[in-house]
């Protein structure tokens, strides 16, 4: 359990996917104009990350590795398989949401299929491989990473809603300002690096 909390805090705050690694930047900038849509997209990203990370972990461990099902090193297929899992998961999520809650489906609209090309999702899976997480840690990383992404997009959307009334130079309005704000938020999040996740885990 301690390990789980440790990885969660690490992923959500200390190594925030957006603010420390710039993953998922495209949709982060495109969808952060209002808090409402940012909220929906954030939730969808959390969900997809939590579902795809363990699946990709299982695939990596039992299909692709040398002591897996086929007994051959199939690591070169990793990228293709990971992206295929993500694409099909997003498709599945889309279908489920459409069946279960048509109102949520309508409010998310085009952002659901866009999650496939959100770098944070593939990046999460690739980080999981690079850092050799175990199964529990991969779930924790998915949950924490998604939560961190959610926090970041909500924060920037709120700031952008307010900053519309400020007197920003015309050439900097919109996109330019969003970049600089993200940079400032990145610096602010760096103060969280002082958190020692091990201290939480010990409690």
């Amino acid at each position: 359990m301690g390990e789980f909390i440790n990885t969660f805090i690490q992923a959500a705050f200390v190594e925030n996917l957006v603010l420390a690694y710039f993953l998922g930047m495209c949709s982060y900038l495109a969808v952060s104009k209002t808090v409402k849509t940012a909220f929906g997209l954030g939730l969808a990203v959390i969900f997809v990350l939590v579902v795809t990370m363990p699946i990709n972990w299982l695939i990596n461990e039992y299909l692709l590795s040398e002591n897996g099902l086929f007994g051959v090193d199939l690591v070169f297929l990793r990228l293709i398989l990971f992206i295929a899992v993500i694409a099909s998961m997003v498709q599945l999520v889309e279908m489920i949401v459409e069946k279960v809650s048509p109102s949520l489906y309508n409010s998310l609209g085009i952002f659901l299929p866009l999650i496939t090309v959100n770098c944070a999702i593939l990046g999460g899976s690739l980080f999981m491989v690079a850092r050799e997480y175990n199964f529990n840690e991969s779930i924790a990383f998915g949950l924490g990473g998604g939560f961190g992404w959610f926090l970041a997009i909500i924060a920037i959307a709120a700031i952008r809603e307010k900053i519309r009334y400020s007197n920003v130079p015309p050439a900097l309005r919109g996109l330019g300002m969003a970049f600089i704000l993200t940079g400032l938020m990145g610096i602010a999040f760096m103060s969280l690096m002082g958190i020692d996740p091990a201290a939480f885990a010990a409690k």
């Binding site: 710039f22 330019g176 300002m177 940079g183 760096m190």
Partner: peptide, 9 residues
């Protein structure tokens, strides 16, 4: 990393 954001901005 933040510097990259500032420079692009």
């Amino acid at each position: 990393p933040a510097a990259a954001m500032f420079i692009i901005g």
